[in-house]
Nucleic acid binder design. Structure first.
Lengths: 416, 416
DNA sequence: GCGTAATAGTTCATCCGTACAACAAATGCG
DNA sequence: CGCATTTGTTGTACGGATGAACTATTACGC
C-alpha cells in the first residue's frame, strides 16, 4: 500500500540538487563573477561587497580565487580623489579564457574567438556556396579551421573553454542532433563528431538563436534590452526569444519559426506546403522578386534600388512609384502582421531586426510599426520598440562564443 | 575615470541575492517540501534522504521544522513487509495551510479554498451577469463572500496563506493593475483594494493563466504534462504557456492572446479592429452563429446539436450536412491554424483545450490535428498531442488557490 | 522464544563557509 | 604632521550539513 521508507530508484523528476556548504561558495563565486562582468565601471573588492551584500572578507577570498583562476584581473590601484586607501579595480581578464564560435551558413563558414572582455581575439570567415553541400566535407573543413585557430590562441597562453556551432536549421541542443537544415540540404546528422575537435566541448545551436545572444552585448551607444524578440531575415526567416537575458528555447529549441506563420491563407504556396507564409512575403527571394531583381542578387542591389526610389521621391517625382516601393511595402506589412501575432502570444515589447532586415529597416519600419500599433492588443499600454540589430556581420559567431563564456560565468567554480 | 571602490547606489539590475548560511536551510527546506508534495507515494525521512541526496540527520531536522510549521504531517508508522524499524510516512498536511482562489467572470463570481493536499475545503460560486458591471459593487460582493469563507476556515483552525483573483482581461500581476477587461466592461482599476480584504495578501492574474495552473494537478487517470499550451475558449479566447510546470508570462503577463491571431486577413472584422482574428471563427459567439443558434445560448445546446448530427450521420444520412458540421468545421480549422502558429513560435508540443473547447473537442480534434500536422514545421520530429482540460469547472479558482500554495512550497522557511 | 540482521530515526563531534570585529595599509586634508 | 577615511586582511564566532555511532523497532531463522 505504501512504499514509505524505500529509496526509490526511479527518480520522478530530477529536481534541484541538495544545497551543501560548497553550494554557497559556488553561488557566491558566480555572483561575484557576474558582477565583475556586468557592471559598467570596474569595482573593487569593497565595491563588490557593497553591490552584492556579501561581507568584505568573503568577497576578498572569492576574488582571490577568481584571480587565481585567470577569470578576473586586478588593475593598478586607483584613488578616486577621496581619502582612504586606493582601491584595486577588478576587470574581466583579457586573453585568458576564451570562447569559440563556429558557423556554417549558406554562403560562408567561419570561426571567431572572443575573450572575457568581449574582444575578438581571432577570426576567420570563408565565403562559399554551401547550398546542398556535403556535411562531412564542409564540417571537416570548418573543423580544420577551428583547430588551427584553437592551436593559435592556445600557443598564446589562452584556454579555449568550449565552442558553439551555429547552423541554419532545426537543431536540438540537448541531443546534439541536426534534424534538418533545408538551405544546406542537410538532415538527420550529428555534426559535432564530424568537426573532429575531440579535445574541446562543442555544442550546436540554431543560427538565429545565437545571433540573438550577440545582441546582448549591446551597441556602442545603445544598451541591449533585457527581453526582446530577435528576427533574422534572409532566405529563410528565423527568430529567437530572449527573456531576462536568457534564451527561451521551448521544449526542444525549435521555437521562433516565424517564417512559417501564415499571413494570408490566400497567398502563394510556400516550400513548407502551407499557403501565405511570412517567408513568401518577407523572405529574401520574395523581396527580390517583388523588386524585379534576380532572386540570388546581393542584398545591396535591393538597398540601392530602394535608396534610388527615395531620391526620386525627394526630387518630387511623386507620381511614379518605384520598384523599391513595390518591394518594401508588402514585406513590411506582412512582417508587421506576423510580429503582431508574435507579440500578442509572447508579450515581449522590443523587437530587434537582424539579418537582411537590419539594412532594410528604414523602408520597413513605418509599415511594421503601423501594423503593430493596430494589431497588438497591449499596444495602448506599452511602448513597442522596433530597432535594428547592433551586432555586426556573422552575429551567430559572436553569440556562440558569448554563450561559451556565459557558461564559464555561470559556473566559475569549475575553473578555480 | 573610474569609480572603482565606490559603493554604487544605483543598482543596475537586482541580481540574485548573496548566499548566506540560512540560504542553505531555505533551499533544502524547499527541496524537502517539494519532494513531500510531488512524490506519488508518501516517503519517510530516510526515503527523502535517499531521494534528495541529503544526509538522514539533515532531513530529520528539516522535516521536524516542516511538521512544526503544519506543512507536513506524519502518518502512523508502517512497515513495508521488510525487516527494520517501521517508517513514518510523511504527507502534505490536510486542513492546515490553505490557499484562496477568487474569480470574477462574465457569468459568475466565486471563491474556492484548497488545502495542501489539493482537496477543496470550501467553495462558493454565484451565477450572475457581470457584462458591463460596476467593479466596485461586484468586487465588494466577492470580497464579502471571500471574507465569510476565510473566517469559516480560520474558525476551523486553518491558516489562509493568501489569495489570487482571476480576471478575464489584461492584468499586470506585478503592479496589481487591471488595464482592461472587455467582457466585464472594466478598465484601468486596481481591483485588490476594492475587495476589502485587508488582512490577506491578494494578487491578481489573468483567468486563462490560472486555469492553466489548475491543469498541473493532473486528471484522475492521466498525468499532467510538464510543459503545455493551454487554450481557454469562451466568448474570448485566451491562452497560457506552462514550461517546466511554471507559467511563462512574458514581460507583463499579457501573453497568450491567441484570440487575436489573424487566421485570414480577408475574414470578418473583429472587435479589436483587425480582420479575421481567430475569435471570429472559434469564439463562442462565432460558433453559435455558424450553427444557427442564438449567440447567447448555452454551450450545451451546441453540444446537443453536434451530437444529433453525429447520430444522423451514423444513421446513414450522409447526404445532409447538419448545422453542427457547419459550426465545427471552420472553428476547428481556424483553431488549428492559430495553434500551428503558436507551436511554430513556441515549440511546446502539448496543447490542452479548456473552456468551451473541452466539451467540443470531439468535433474539433480531427481538424485541429490535421492542420497542426500540416503546418507545424517540427511535426515530423515530435509527437504533438491535443488533449482536453482535466480540471473541472471554474478551473481558475483551483489554479489561483494552487498558485498560493505553490508560493508556500517555494518558501516554506517563511512558515517555520 | 531468542538472537541476529536490517532499517528508521537521533545524537554528537567535525568540517566548511560566511559574518563581524579588529587591525594593517594607504591616502587626502587641515 | 596628525587625523579621518577607505581598502584589504586576519582571527574568532556561528550556522548548517555530514558521517559515524547509537537507539528503536521490526522480520527472520533456529
Amino acid at each position: 500500500m505504501t512504499t514509505a521508507g524505500t529509496a526509490r530508484e526511479t527518480t520522478t523528476r530530477t529536481g534541484p540538487a541538495a544545497a551543501r556548504q560548497h553550494t554557497l561558495r559556488e553561488r557566491n563565486l558566480e555572483l561575484i563573477a557576474r558582477a565583475v562582468f556586468e557592471v559598467p565601471e570596474p569595482l573593487s573588492r569593497a565595491g563588490l561587497a557593497a553591490a552584492t551584500g556579501l561581507a568584505r572578507a568573503t568577497v576578498s577570498t572569492l576574488v582571490d580565487q577568481l584571480v587565481a583562476a585567470r577569470l578576473v584581473r586586478e588593475l593598478p590601484a586607483v584613488n578616486g580623489g577621496r581619502a582612504g586607501r586606493p582601491a584595486v579595480p577588478l576587470v574581466p581578464a583579457p586573453r585568458s579564457v576564451v570562447g569559440l564560435g563556429l558557423e556554417v551558413n549558406v554562403d560562408y563558414l567561419g570561426a571567431r574567438v572572443l575573450d572575457l572582455t568581449g574582444d575578438v581575439v581571432a577570426e576567420r570567415v570563408v565565403p562559399g556556396a554551401f547550398h546542398d553541400s556535403d556535411p562531412t566535407a564542409v564540417l571537416r573543413r570548418l573543423g580544420d579551421l577551428a583547430r588551427e585557430m584553437s592551436d593559435g590562441v592556445a600557443a598564446a597562453g589562452m584556454t579555449v573553454a568550449g565552442a558553439r556551432l551555429a547552423l541554419p536549421g532545426l537543431v536540438d541542443p540537448r541531443t546534439g542532433l541536426l534534424e534538418v537544415a533545408p538551405n544546406l540540404g542537410w538532415s538527420s546528422l550529428e555534426p559535432v563528431p564530424l568537426l573532429g575537435l575531440g579535445e574541446t566541448e562543442v555544442r550546436i545551436a540554431n543560427e538565429a538563436k545565437l545571433a540573438a545572444l550577440a545582441e546582448l552585448a549591446g551597441g556602442s551607444d545603445v544598451a541591449a534590452p533585457d527581453s526582446f524578440i530577435f528576427v533574422s531575415g534572409d532566405v529563410g526567416i528565423g527568430a529567437a526569444i530572449v527573456v531576462d537575458r536568457e534564451l527561451f528555447l521551448g521544449e526542444r529549441g525549435w521555437n521562433g519559426e516565424i517564417g512559417h506563420v501564415v499571413v494570408d491563407p490566400a497567398g502563394p504556396r510556400c516550400s513548407c506546403g502551407a499557403f501565405g507564409c511570412l517567408e513568401q512575403y518577407a523572405g529574401k527571394v520574395a523581396m527580390m522578386r517583388a523588386a524585379g531583381l534576380p532572386p540570388d542578387a546581393p542584398l545591396a542591389s535591393l538597398v540601392t534600388q530602394l535608396a534610388d526610389g527615395d531620391a526620386a521621391l525627394r526630387a518630387g517625382d511623386r507620381a511614379a512609384p518605384t520598384a523599391g516601393d513595390r518591394a518594401a511595402l508588402p514585406a513590411g506589412r506582412a512582417l508587421g502582421s506576423a510580429l503582431a501575432d508574435f507579440v500578442n502570444l509572447f508579450d515581449v515589447a522590443t523587437i530587434v531586426l537582424g539579418g537582411a532586415y537590419t539594412e532594410l529597416l528604414p523602408w520597413l519600419r513605418a509599415d511594421v510599426e503601423a501594423v503593430l500599433a493596430d494589431r497588438v492588443l497591449a499596444a495602448p499600454f506599452v511602448d513597442l520598440e522596433v530597432r535594428a540589430a547592433q551586432a555586426g556581420p556573422h552575429a551567430a559567431l559572436t553569440g556562440g562564443a558569448r554563450q561559451v563564456l556565459q557558461a564559464v560565468l555561470a559556473d566559475p567554480a569549475a575553473w578555480v
